[in-house]
Write a protein that binds this DNA or RNA. Structure first.
Length: 490
RNA sequence: GGCGCUAUCGUCUAGGGGACUAGGACGGGGCCCUCUCAAGGCCCAAACACGGGUUCGAAUCCCGUUAGCGCUACCA
């Protein structure tokens, strides 16, 4: 174990090559949780050194994803591409102190040698031929304008570190090759840029995906060659799809933005992601952000790759939907209601209390905010469509159904108070009087009120719609049924 | 191929030498509740990859095998 830095500084350093991926979001989350838990700083750096791949749109998508999740960062965003001069200076330092050397081998030559080794079934490693060039030849070729890259010279020995999640990991240096740190066009290669920037940003804990384990010995060697103190490293397990393979588009949505648009709550997404590769112990599962911050420690970090199971995410979202304060749910649902054309803001403002209890009623059987909106129509709209299956099942005989609905309307209309208990008493006595099971009254009524065979409890629906709308609904249903009777009769 | 990482129910995980008849959750099945559907409650099926050690005793420690994954660029 390495001692915990007193004022940890962590960073999330995505390359802007697409959207914010759930794996990236999880990495960002753990960095953020660690910083919050230990009172440190969480920084953001965009690794845009490969101008060919990065786009502004991707960078924006990363910001938006992080903001939606509520993963806020401190200080200004660092753009790696802006640090070119420092990267070059660091390469120069290593050239000067003998840790690196110039290499004149061309990509074509290297490629040929690699292929050659491959055909002989040998593993290729740069043979250091340029490191053996006499000093005067190097100066001559540089003076002649011959292009060269800068390679780092791997020293003898073994490189190891105490990983925060894996404990000790070590690599024999002989398995490492003299890797390029500066291209022939004088731009830095990833490992140099990362180390240079992490040093400049004073990062004390580098927490990233497992796929970076093999970069770590190279980076450690770079820190040493530059005379810098090492950060602590933590390598998080990967996230795979249900088939155990690396998570990709094949597995469905992998961009956090997709989940946002599917009606997921950021808190649920975070909670779900946190459980992939971390466990708070004691069978804790559903947690708020505050609870996660409180509970988060590196001891709970797991080593095994986890599989992303969308079913559990759905369940988690349902849990959060029911748990968050209504006041927090309302602002995300309301724009969707307006977007759906159900209401406008001022009409909602004028009956806020009613609206809040409607949301409270609907969220119980919703797994996404989309579900809530989908269910909300019957409480706002003037007219509704009848689901054919619901009709076939509960209005099997149109004239009988119309008859039952009419007497239901009469009983309801005669009820003294439009509240659940009296309403229920009226309908149950109607059922008794007609010798029917209560369900035979409730189900046709449900279709009349909502158009569906499924809804919240029928008395809650009645109360939520209110006397006028409910009675209007029933009369419309009766008319609809009567006209369909005429059609089938003719 | 080389190097590295990993290995508990289908999935997320608890467990860290005796508390294990291996616990919880998702998903699946059943029951209860009930006006429908959810929610909720109860119950059931379901796992220590394999082989050797170490030990009185191994899911737990060690070695090996196997499998999966990652890296192996003048990508990040």
């Amino acid at each position: 174990m390495t001692d915990t830095p007193r004022r940890p500084r962590l960073r999330f350093a995505p390359s802007p090559t697409g959207y914010l991926h759930v794996g990236g979001a999880r990495t960002a989350l753990f960095n953020w949780l660690y910083a919050k838990h230990f009172g440190g700083q969480f920084l953001l750096r965009i690794e845009d050194t490969d101008k060919a791949r990065g786009t502004d749109a991707s960078t924006r998508a990363i910001f938006e994803g992080l903001q939606w999740l509520g993963l806020d960062w401190q200080e200004d965003v660092v753009y790696q591409g802006a640090n070119l001069e420092r990267h070059q200076r660091d390469a120069r330092t290593m050239l000067d102190n003998g840790a690196a050397y110039r290499c004149f081998c061309t990509p074509a030559e290297l490629d040929a040698r690699r292929k050659d080794a491959e055909s002989r079934k040998e593993s290729f490693k740069y043979d250091r031929r340029c490191d053996r060039l006499p000093a005067n030849e190097v100066t001559r070729r540089v003076a002649a304008g011959e292009p060269f890259v800068v390679r780092f010279r791997i020293p003898e020995g073994t490189t190891s570190w105490d990983d925060l999640v894996h404990d000790t990991i070590s690599f024999p240096n002989k398995d490492l090759e003299d890797f390029v740190i500066l291209r022939s066009n004088a731009t830095p290669i990833y490992n140099l840029a990362v180390v240079s920037d992490d040093m400049a940003m004073d990062i004390t804990l580098v927490m990233r995906g497992d796929d970076h384990i093999s970069n770590t010995p190279k980076q450690i060697l770079l820190y040493k060659a530059l005379g810098a103190a090492l950060p602590v490293f933590a390598h998080l397990p990967m996230i795979h799809g249900m088939d155990g393979k690396k998570l990709s588009k094949r597995h469905g949505a992998t961009a956090v933005g997709d989940y946002q648009h599917q009606g997921l709550l950021p808190g649920a997404m975070l909670n779900f992601l946190a459980l992939l590769g971390w466990s708070p112990g004691e069978d804790r599962e559903v947690m708020t952000m505050e609870q996660m911050i409180e509970l988060f420690t590196p001891d709970g970090l797991l080593r095994k790759a986890a599989i992303f199971d969308p079913k559990k995410l759905d369940w988690m979202n349902g849990q959060h939907l029911s748990l968050i304060p209504l006041a927090d749910l309302e602002p995300t649902v309301t724009p969707m209601m307006i977007e759906a054309g159900f209401v406008d803001q001022s009409s909602l403002d004028s009956r806020r209390e009613w609206y809040m209890s409607l949301l409270d009623m609907l969220r119980v059987r919703a797994r996404t905010t989309d579900d809530i909106v989908r269910q909300a129509g019957p409480y706002f709209l003037d007219s509704i469509a009848y689901d054919p299956e619901a009709v076939a099942k509960n209005w099997k005989d149109p004239s009988a159904a119309a008859d039952i609905l009419q007497s239901t309307a009469d009983a309801l209309g005669a009820t003294s108070s439009w509240t659940p208990e009296p309403l229920e008493a009226s309908l149950r006595s109607l059922a008794d009087a007609r010798g029917l099971a209560a369900g035979k009254i409730f189900q046709p009524l449900r279709v009349a009120l909502t158009g569906l065979a499924v809804s919240p409890g029928i008395f809650d629906v009645l109360v939520m719609q209110g006397r006028a709308l409910a009675l209007h609904r029933i009369q419309s249903a009766v008319r609809w049924l009567e006209s369909s009777t005429n059609i089938s009769a003719s």
